[in-house]
Nucleic acid binder design. Structure first.
Lengths: 299, 299
DNA sequence: TTGAAAGCGTTACCAT
DNA sequence: ATGGTAACGCTTTCAA
């Protein structure tokens, strides 16, 4: 052993993979790596894997998803990994079947997929919490910046957040006007543009619940451009607790993306070392963080 | 072949890796995956690799770098990849030697490392360009938000950008006051805090050149908090052309991170298919984009 | 405790 | 063209 060490010998992973059937690598399927949530969950997964010497193989479906089929066939199914963690992916039935046929542990983070185990927050509950906080402040005309369904991505996340908003409004006896809803991509630029559209159409809104912090920050920027004072003229709440939320003083419902990644990795590692599969789902708590973008309506 | 296809047969990568000596995987060493530049270069690399069926193995050194040694030994050297692309890493001599002993193609993106090939922009030139633009508008008291040297990261990037600023100032016969310099991490929160410190100390600055767009956006936020009007009271220029730059109307020197990633991947793939190594360095052009945060000084 | 040998699933070479 | 076989570098088992 000492001599091997001195010579700088390192075992070949292909050879030991062949011999043992273990690759010591985890596949992580991501829609892309530039969005906060994906990057942060990935960071959490990878931190956990690193500790035990596991490698992360990135199966990036790409911003446009054009190579999705190829990635699936040429990469994921090539027995290069011992387990797979997927982020907010909307698998087709065929894809799910192929994954299952691989016969190794699989878990999804951030948006439930029927038939697969799931780590994430209660999307509906989180949205209801955010909306209820606004209602509790006395707001009655509350708009919603909903996430757009992007192809290939899990559509349940934006859907459930919207549903949570509607349920909270209805439960409080408030109307849910069609004009109070606007859709955008889950990023700052999208949120900004959607807010401009929304406020042009429904200028009397006193509050906006955005489906993500990035969208909410876009809303803040848009409101400022319109000369609105936040929170006096408009309250804004997001979801995530993005690092920028603090910088912008954004009130939000915090979710622990890093922790979700860590847990998903932990689950997979446990099962790979022989533990019985825990069925889940694994619900992460999410807590409201009051900052400076929320206040009672001024009129 | 048809039958194999029908049965859903996919070759084992360990076995074919053993037999051919080719893993069809590329190692990508990143400091983390949450910063824009790294994520975007990674996206570019991965897009190129996907096309030809190559997999991306993420060697994440981690936000705190605590597992660096382990990642190196247990992962990078394990012959799991055919080539390695490293982003802004500051390799120790020992690490470089180990990498070299692996004997496979290697390239660095985004900050030169002695002895390794390099894809990136002319850091010094980019900074000089940004500063010169401010000088051209008539500014004379120009501050600089420099990037802090983070451990394990390439220190040349912040250093050269600072040097470019100093050279531009000196060339224009302007003084470079010590009070006009402030350091921060390469992100929005850091840029904001540093700007608050900077303007507290040197309130008469009429312009700030930030070493990255994220820092520049932090500067914009800080200036707004101080009640300054941009660009009337303060001009701000960044580097990158981050997606948010447009949203904030930030003038900046644009660099093509995605393209740098693509090129690095292309280089490696070419050499793996037998092409002679091109020595480089591979300098990417960077162009000034004038937006709304720059104007002549008002006093 | 140490050593020898079979086998993992491919590829590539060499006969046929 | 086609089929058989050795070899890739490791792990694991079995014998000594």
């Amino acid at each position: 052993m000492a001599t091997a060490e001195q010579l700088g010998y390192v075992a070949s992973s292909s050879a030991s993979g062949l011999a043992t059937g273990r690759t010591l690598a985890m596949g992580v399927v991501v829609p892309n790596v530039t969005r906060w949530f994906y990057a942060t969950v990935l960071e959490g997964i990878d931190a956990e894997l690193r500790r035990v010497g596991y490698d992360t193989i990135l199966f990036n479906l790409g911003l446009r998803g054009e190579d999705r089929e190829r990635v699936f066939h040429r990469s994921i199914l090539r027995k290069r990994t011992d387990a797979v963690i997927a982020l907010c992916i909307d698998f087709t039935p065929a894809e799910r079947e192929q994954l299952a046929s691989l016969g190794h542990p699989t878990v999804v983070v951030g948006g439930p997929v029927p038939g697969l185990r799931h780590v994430g927050v209660d999307e509906l509950g989180v949205a209801r919490e955010a909306t209820t906080q606004l209602i509790g402040l006395g707001h009655r005309r509350i708009g919603h910046l909903a996430g757009a369904s992007e192809r290939g991505l899990n559509k349940r996340v934006p859907q459930r957040r919207r549903r949570g908003y509607e349920l909270a409004m209805t439960a409080a006896g408030l109307p849910v006007e069609r004009d109070w809803l606007e859709r955008s991509t889950f990023d700052i630029a999208g949120g900004r543009a959607a807010t401009l559209r929304l406020l042009a159409r429904a200028p009397r809104l006193t509050a906006i619940f955005a489906a993500s912090d990035e969208m909410a920050i876009g809303a803040i920027l848009a409101a400022r451009e319109l000369g609105l004072d936040i929170p006096r003229d408009l309250s804004i709440v997001g979801i995530d607790d993005h690092p920028l939320a603090e910088t912008f003083g954004l009130s939000t419902v915090a979710q622990d993306a890093l922790g979700q990644g860590r847990l998903a990795a932990q689950l997979m590692l446990d099962e790979l070392s022989g533990a019985a599969p825990r069925p889940g789902p694994f619900r992460f708590p999410a807590t409201y963080v009051e900052r400076a973008t929320t206040a009672p309506p001024s009129c």
